[in-house]
Design a protein around this nucleic acid. Structure first.
Lengths: 350, 350
DNA sequence: TTTAATCGTACCGGTGTTCAC
DNA sequence: GGTGAACACCGGTACGATTAA
């Protein structure tokens, strides 16, 4: 591999001059003739600057780490897809890694990145935030907020209220909530909203828990639950992913969706849109969320001392056939209900 | 951030000794007492070695680049998930990036990685392979093979033959193939197999093309095709992803799957397993494939001159309800048909 | 002279400041 | 003042030199 020194030698100039020309630094003038000589030498040798050396010298790697709980879920891969596009447009590379509760903090802190995007790290966030902030910009995405960290989250309250309200309108009187254990806590907006709305209507929460966010577990649990709670006539699921497993279980039990039991999910994955029956769900503006997160991380890279910014984007409940008991227009395009919940707050404790 | 020099100073030793101790080099002996002093100094300072500096000095980054055509598709995110697990177990980080035909080769060649995994890069492969091989180990995954590159691919021929054969057995006489244009070429095993089997049975290929691998396009195309070819009674799709869009279109057109038209896909995604009706598909051993790819890349990192190795893993056709016209056991677990196609060849032209 | 233990220092490949013509 | 060379960094690694027993 040709190095800068090689190019400089070939062009008969010093490394300094070659560097100035090839990295496009203005400021110090270089004669057009020298520029041409250096450019040509570089082109002939197929010179590519070594990112590592540049990073070591400047302290900027032009890489961003993305930390997620899992990778092989459409919701997260959609996020990665968005961020990758944004990153590339700005000349950044992405280091992608999963974080589980037992993950090695030291390893994460040593990632060669200028900053990092923490995605949905409810359970493991605290120490990671501290560790990562010592090394660069940190932005929280679609998870817990934290007073010292920029973040973009969803405001689910009214969307969940819409969902439950809609199910009640459709005649549901016993609405379960299928999820994994850590999410049955007040800081999880979905659970919070579900519980609140049920309380307001004098209904009892019915949490159905499974050990991991896996479809077959959702299916098995729902089959069990249908025997355990024969009066259950509605099911709200923490994610579309779980809802799809649940729908499978409901059909396998010989029940019908939505006639016997209505099902709603959350995330508005493409899969829910295309399944049979199409799944009612809470739609999250993933694209805008990622764009804001990217904007925030770039801002903090430029101005490390900028005030902390928290953004909350509105979520929307989308009605499809899986919760529509009354109007059976099989071939109609998906009905869609009003958007709700807007909240745009700034500020925090740096 | 504490540097090695800081630690060395604190422990009263030279950088050399500190480096030897902290990077766990054996070979040269260090007194237990010195080791303890250095370790303690490092612990107290919360020392984390700078990967960039180490990489610059050793020439090894302990990072692997993963190049894929897109990210937000379950098939690819499953691959990323597998590789991430393998990489982490070996202490590697992953640089993940999309490659489209117009991608900047220079940028890819400059990725700070010891090697790279090329995933499904049929159209853009040639120049990238050459560029990447100059910089490190390269392994092809689930795509075209190349004489100078280790690769792991699937042997689809017999699985496709099984799929088409099965559809014919179920009474299908006009079987379409839904896909995107670049895959209608002999080097794509699915198309190759489809065409071959149809030819053997005296049937005409019926390619249905869409511009991009998107579900809504699949849905729209199939709605159109059902009018255009009213006798079409079977549909083989390049991926499950397309098959799911097609199924949506078929149902939206008022037809039934599998009674009016059978549908099969490829990839065996979880989504196809859980949708209604469950989708017959070609199952690809993604886990083993990724493990082989990882083994190959690590091998080549150790022995750059090792002979090129090409692996071909068997694919299996899995029968589910979307192609089962005759046996209507709605609640039975998925039927499964025999595995076929084994081929394990080594060697090549380095 | 050998051997254990440690040090000094030239790298790796860039960046950016200082200084000379 | 316009050009460009010299050189000290960034934070590690690794090899030869050095010391003491």
């Amino acid at each position: 591999m040709a190095t800068l020194a090689d190019i400089a030698a070939k062009a008969g100039v010093s490394k300094a001059t070659a560097s100035r020309v090839l990295s496009g630094k203005t400021g110090v003038p270089v004669s057009p003739e020298t520029v041409a000589r250096i450019r040509q030498a570089a082109a002939e040798a197929g010179y590519t600057p070594n990112r590592l050396a540049a990073a070591l010298a400047t302290g900027r790697t032009n890489m961003i780490a993305v930390l997620l709980p899992v990778l092989d879920r459409p919701y997260y891969s959609a996020i990665i897809g968005h961020i990758e596009r944004l990153a590339r447009a700005d000349g950044y590379e992405l280091l992608i890694t999963c974080v589980r509760p037992g993950s090695d903090l030291r390893r994460l802190a040593a990632l060669p990145a200028d900053g990092c995007i923490l995605c949905e790290l409810y359970g493991v966030g605290e120490p990671i935030i501290a560790a990562m902030q010592k090394r660069g910009a940190v932005v929280g995405l679609s998870g817990q907020t934290h007073s010292t960290m920029d973040s973009v989250v969803f405001d689910m309250d009214s969307a969940v209220a819409d969902a439950i309200g809609h199910m009640v309108e459709q005649g549901c009187r016993r609405i379960g909530y299928l999820t994994v254990p850590p999410t049955i806590r007040p800081e999880y907006p979905r659970w919070h909203g579900y519980q609140k709305v049920l309380g307001e209507r004098g209904m009892e929460p019915l949490p159905l828990l499974i050990d991991a966010e896996r479809r077959n577990l959702a299916r098995d649990r729902i089959i069990e639950a249908l025997e355990q709670y024969p009066d259950m006539d509605g099911l709200f699921c923490h994610t579309d992913h779980l809802a799809l497993g649940a729908m499978r279980g409901i059909v396998d039990s010989g029940r019908r969706v939505p006639e016997d039991i209505t099902v709603a999910g959350c995330d508005n994955t493409e899969e829910g849109e295309f399944c049979e029956p199409p799944l009612s769900t809470i739609s999250l503006p993933l694209g805008p969320m990622c764009e804001h997160a990217w904007r925030l991380i770039r801002r903090r890279l430029c101005e490390p001392e900028a005030p902390v910014e928290h953004l909350s984007l509105p979520a929307t409940f989308v009605v499809r056939r899986s919760t529509l008991r009354h109007s059976h227009q099989t071939h109609a395009p998906s009905a869609q209900r009003a958007l709700t919940g807007t909240n745009h707050s700034k500020g925090g404790t740096p």
